[in-house]
Amino acid sequence: MQRRHVVQYGAAGVGAVALMLGVGWWRADGPGAPKPAGQRPLPLSAMDFRLTDHEGNEVGPETLIGRPTMVFFGFTYCPDVCPTTLSDISGWLEDLGDEAAQMNVVFITVDPERDTVEAMAEYVGYFHPAIRGWTGPANQVARAAEGFRASYERVPTKGGDYTMNHTASVFLFDAKGELVTMIDYHEPREFAVPKIRRALTEDVEGAT
C-alpha cells in the first residue's frame, strides 16, 4: 500500500513537472515568449498586414508611407494605460500644433474581438482628431504586431472577463517608413515632443 501510494504520487509528480515544463515552454519559446529587448520594428515597407480604419477604409503599412508616422498598440477596454497614452499623445499633438497635421497617428487594437470598427470610431473620437483607430481580423492584427515587434497576450480576470497585456511603447517612423525612435510609456512630454519633431524632420538617408 505504501509503495503504491508512492508510485501514485510519483505519477502525479511527473504529470505536474510535465505541465510545468509545458507552461515553461509556452512562456520561454512559445507564443507567450516576451520579445527580446532591443528587437527593432521592421521598416513599414517590409511589413504586410491588412486592417480597417475607424471610418471603414482598408489600410495597411503602405498607407503610412509618405508621411511621418506614430503608432501605438492598445485596446478600448483598457482602463488605465491606453486612455493615459492616448491622452499623452493628444497632448503632444496639441503641442505640435499645425505640424501634427503632417503626421499619421495610428492606434492599433490588440483586442479585435471587442474592438469593432464602430467601437474604435467611438473611442478615438474622444481624443485628438489626428488619431486613427485600426482593427481587423485577429490574424492580421497578429501580423501587424509581428512587424512592429510588439507583443500582446490575453489575460483572464475575475468574473469571467479578460484584459490584455501589450506593448505600450509609441513607435515613430519617418516619411520613408524607417523607424526613427520609440517613446516609452510615461516618457515626459519634454522628451517626447522633441522626438516627434525629429521624426518630422528626419533626414531620410540618415535614418537607421
Binding site: 516576451p34 520579445k35 527580446p36 507583443s151 468574473g159 484584459t163 506593448t167
Partner: peptide, 19 residues
C-alpha cells in the same frame, strides 16, 4: 461597480504593460 479592486499597472523592460 460590483467588483472594485485596487490594481497596479506595470511596464516591463520590453515595454509590455500589464495590470
Amino acid at each position: 461597480a460590483m467588483m472594485p479592486e485596487i490594481h497596479e499597472s506595470k511596464t516591463n523592460s520590453n515595454g509590455v504593460s500589464s495590470m
